[in-house]
Design a protein around this nucleic acid. Structure first.
Lengths: 138, 138
DNA sequence: ATCAGTGCAAAAGCTTTGCAGCGGT
DNA sequence: ACCGCTGCAAAGCTTTTGCACTGAT
């Protein structure tokens, strides 16, 4: 049973369990955000009794603790999750092959600056999604 | 039966029907995007036999003809629709009262400029959503 | 009269939830 | 031993779809 994250989880006030450690393991192995279903598929290979709803509950929990970020893709309306390791919060989505390409230099500052001129609104975050064709599909 | 939009619809290669005229009427009256359900509620007051699926089909049709724009709000995962009258494509969403405040000066140019430096990706559009507190909820 | 549009009901797809039993500290 | 976590099954919610009837031109 993977317990590598017991301390890490405790630091966030979360109990360590087999399932949570497994999900954390998988999140660390991924190089791009994945849907609950995708995470479930990988997890089920290692622990077949594991349930999809546990994945959802775990991801929701991690999300509430800011361990992972949750993004809704507007095209599919599906949520994708990834570790919240600073940076990489926006993606370019290829409308053809559905590839997700991280936006290295997020123009956050530019956006919030441009918007803040509209007084009265206190910005706490933003979502940005770029649609187009990746280099292979173009 | 409202027929005011017969010519307008014909111009887009769409037949004029009672339901479509009604939806167009309502879209014109709205001052902010609405969900299919909201449009349905208003429409049902005027034509009780009208069905939700007709609203969805009509909005999808209008969307495919670029008469309306469809936006997925990430918080609720629900689609909202509005007339595609140039500008007003992004919103600030109040996380408390759910108010939608249009972004007058969309930093599109800034964004696409900042992103285009990552060669190889051909941008055809983008989605931007600002989260925060509106002046009343702050 | 023809063929698209519509109402109705059911299905689909992702996500959430109630409950009883299991498992971690 | 206690209380939260999990598996299972079912429900929820928005949106889509099949089908037969209706209605617009």
């Amino acid at each position: 049973m993977p317990k590598h994250y017991t301390d890490f989880l405790a630091k966030h006030g979360i109990k360590s369990t087999h399932q949570r450690n497994l999900v954390l393991d998988l999140l660390h192995q991924m190089n791009s955000p994945a849907s609950a279903e995708e995470i479930y598929q990988k997890a089920a290979l290692l622990q077949p009794t594991l349930n999809l709803s546990t994945i959802y509950r775990t991801l929701e929990l991690f999300s509430s603790k800011n361990i992972v970020t949750k993004t809704i893709l507007s095209e599919t309306k599906k949520a994708i999750y990834e570790l919240n390791t600073a940076g990489h919060k926006h993606y370019m989505v290829c409308v053809k092959c559905k590839a997700l390409l991280p936006l290295e230099n997020c123009p956050c500052a530019l956006i919030e600056e441009a918007v803040s001129s509209q007084g009265g609104f206190e910005i706490i975050g933003h979502k940005l999604e770029i649609m187009g064709y990746c280099s292979r599909c173009k």
